[in-house]
Design a protein around this nucleic acid. Structure first.
Lengths: 133, 133
DNA sequence: GTTCTTGCAAAGGATTTGCATCCTC
DNA sequence: GAGGATGCAAATCCTTTGCAAGAAC
């Protein structure tokens, strides 16, 4: 299966993978755990966490927020977006104008009222590119 | 000062505000606490947390990630972005094509290598708009 | 004076870690 | 068999809460 990432194919890992494939939305580890538990009652939450991290590190799944974890206050009051380094997790600012995305405001399909855009540009910062040579 | 938001002007609150104004980047509560403690050694971390939340609720400051908190796995493998309701915090998906932002890949100013865009459209979902009438 | 705030300590939730045992390769 | 994976419990990190004492309006 998808385990050319150097991961052993264990029963637990396989079931977690299958369940993730068939879930939709943005499940939390607890939600995944609850589903997996129905098929493997003896599984532990720690195992679910470990495997979710492995899947994310391997790029098999993404996580929704690249900078979840702790509360961060935005001190830059100018319109700007974020450059998020996927390697070192650093976040730096870039002026909205400099990035130049044409963002639609107002109603979107589905009736959602768009008021503000928060863009994360994911990639590698200059420093991590140098190290990756 | 900025306290037409119905907040009492306490010494602690004032100092926290001033310090936030003069910080840059995306400080964590602990970092803010450390700075404030230099001016008010007796301040408690809980007070910093309470005031950060009040500032954010009042719109005086923003928080960096609208959906920090717990790990969420992305189960939608199609290119898409997120509609984040600022009232009920719900997150729904919208196809990248449907949103239609022209995103630049490759090198950005500062040497950042852009690989992927994660866009949060902040606003009100249809349901919360109805309730807000 | 009444109400909102603070500081402290304890509680809570989410996530990680250590370790013995078990399972893939 | 060797090394990675699991399960459990304890530990840790981040954040919130309860409450008595203190400050703002």
């Amino acid at each position: 299966m998808c385990e050319n990432a150097g991961l052993a194919v264990t029963h637990q890992r396989h079931v977690i993978y299958e369940i993730l494939k068939n879930m939709h939305g943005h499940p939390s580890p607890e939600e995944v755990y609850a589903r997996v538990k129905r098929r493997i009652p003896s599984i532990s939450l720690a195992t679910v966490y470990k495997n979710l991290h492995l899947f994310i590190e391997s790029g098999i799944f993404h996580e929704v927020s690249l900078h979840h974890g702790s509360l961060r206050v935005e001190t830059n009051h100018r319109p700007h977006h974020h450059l998020v380094c996927t390697r070192c997790k650093s976040i730096s600012d870039i002026d909205a104008k400099e990035l130049g995305l044409a963002a639609k405001h107002g109603k979107l399909p589905g009736g959602f009222l768009a008021q503000r855009y928060a863009v994360d540009v994911l990639g590698l910062c200059a420093e991590c590119q140098r190290k990756a040579d």
